[in-house]
């Protein structure tokens, strides 16, 4: 199943091999196969449509018609379109303010708390003085969980005080400033995007602390709804980026495209396991290869 797309693409390339030119009908058939394959990789339907239009436009260009291997060229076009979409607007985290606040938000169970620990560890290794805080008053033992992680990566945990999440966040930021931390990573309770009350709460928290980075933590196994999730969090907190978790589950990762397409924000890191060091920079080319069902599309093209 994992290799369905690369198989399909191989078939497509083979069928079109040596064709003098790609007919409109050939192209349509190819795009239909590609559409199915992308949907199987959990690329959201509107994003799939967008990509198919993109590939069609690019493919109708002269390049393909003249190519001896039009199938390969079309696959390459799709691969490039994916990588373009995933790789737009790359930049480092903005940590110029002291203290900088990094807000982590997302659905329940996405991996926010774990990611807070991972990110703290990474920033410490870059020479930053980092603290962690949680304003999750909902999930049982949520704050204990972050405290344990803080201990594992050897950074302080700051307990904010106040009646609301926004107040707790504000008090933690003050404390982080007093303690001379460069960065405060702010973990929040999980929430569903259809829950207006909690979406307002996250908006309040982001505003209250002027978070310089507002990162959506998204489970890479998420299906079609990733599009709506990204849109809603973007409209609530004006996301500055996204972190994709649980990519070690052999995910195809269509959700990444949903985020990139609907918000234009960069995907910065990926979670690759449960431990605090299972954290990597996001690589658009590699993710494009994953969505296409294999790591090296150029290699596939050369084999044909």
């Amino acid at each position: 199943m994992f290799n369905r797309l690369s198989e399909k693409l191989g078939d497509i390339a083979h069928k079109l091999r040596g064709a003098a030119r790609v007919s409109e009908a050939d192209l349509d058939a190819t795009l239909r196969e590609m559409r199915m394959a992308l949907l199987e990789a959990d690329v959201a339907l509107p994003v799939t449509r967008h990509l198919m239009n993109e590939v069609r436009e690019r493919a109708l260009g002269a390049e393909v018609a003249k190519s001896l291997q039009p199938g390969q060229v079309i696959i390459k076009i799709l691969n490039d379109a994916l990588a373009d979409l995933l790789g737009g607007q790359r930049r480092d985290l903005d940590l110029s303010k002291i203290p900088s606040v990094i807000l982590l938000c997302g659905l329940q169970g996405a991996g926010k708390t774990t990611t807070a620990g991972k990110l703290a560890r990474l920033l410490v290794s870059q020479g930053k003085k980092v603290a962690l805080t949680s304003v999750d008053a909902t999930r049982p033992a949520a704050r204990e969980q972050l405290q344990v992680l803080a201990g594992q990566v050897d950074v302080p945990y700051i307990a904010g005080e106040g009646g609301s999440a926004a107040a707790m966040a504000r008090s933690a930021v003050k404390q982080a400033g007093r303690d001379g931390h460069h960065v405060l990573i702010l973990d929040t309770a999980g929430r569903q995007v259809v829950d207006d009350e909690l979406m307002n709460e996250i908006r309040d928290v982001a505003t209250a602390v002027g978070a310089t980075e507002r990162l959506l933590v998204l489970d890479a196994m998420t299906g079609q709804t990733a599009l709506q999730i990204a849109e809603q969090f973007h409209s609530a907190v004006n996301m500055s980026g996204c972190i994709l978790t649980k990519t070690d589950a052999d995910v195809r990762g269509g959700a990444a495209l949903s985020v990139a397409h609907s918000t234009g924000v960069p995907i910065r890191y990926v979670g690759t396991g449960e431990k605090v060091d299972a954290f990597e920079l996001f690589d658009p080319q590699r993710m494009a290869g994953r969505i296409l069902g294999q790591g090296d599309v150029v290699g596939l093209v050369e084999k044909i």
Partner: peptide, 10 residues
């Protein structure tokens, strides 16, 4: 998880 995509099959 009800939000999971095709990965749930695996």
């Amino acid at each position: 998880d009800g939000g999971t995509g095709q990965n749930a099959v695996m």
